[in-house]
């Protein structure tokens, strides 16, 4: 099952914090993170990289869907 974290509209550092929380809780599998600013996208991708997850970025008009897998 895919966990989805909706971090749209949240200011720093909450998107990154929620992403880390979700990745650690899931341990492995697939986690999707929704963000709507480029700063949040970069921060969440940095978290994913540090936690050892692969990332795919899907642009969905007004938001980014970060598909994180491990």
């Amino acid at each position: 099952m895919t966990t989805v974290v909706d971090a749209r509209g949240l200011a720093c550092p909450h998107p990154a914090l929620l992403t880390r929380q979700a990745l650690r809780r899931a341990g492995s599998g697939q986690v999707e993170v929704l963000v709507d600013t480029d700063t949040a996208r970069e921060n969440c991708l940095r978290v994913a990289e540090r936690e050892g997850w692969q990332a795919e970025v899907i642009f969905e008009g007004s938001a980014y869907r970060l598909r994180l897998t491990r």
Binding site: R8, G9, L10, A11, P13, H14, L17, D36, S62
Partner: peptide
């Protein structure tokens, strides 16, 4: 405070 759950609400487009 953030670790304790502090966050202001969401902004919207």
């Amino acid at each position: 405070l953030m670790r304790g759950g502090y966050a202001l609400g969401r902004a919207s487009p």
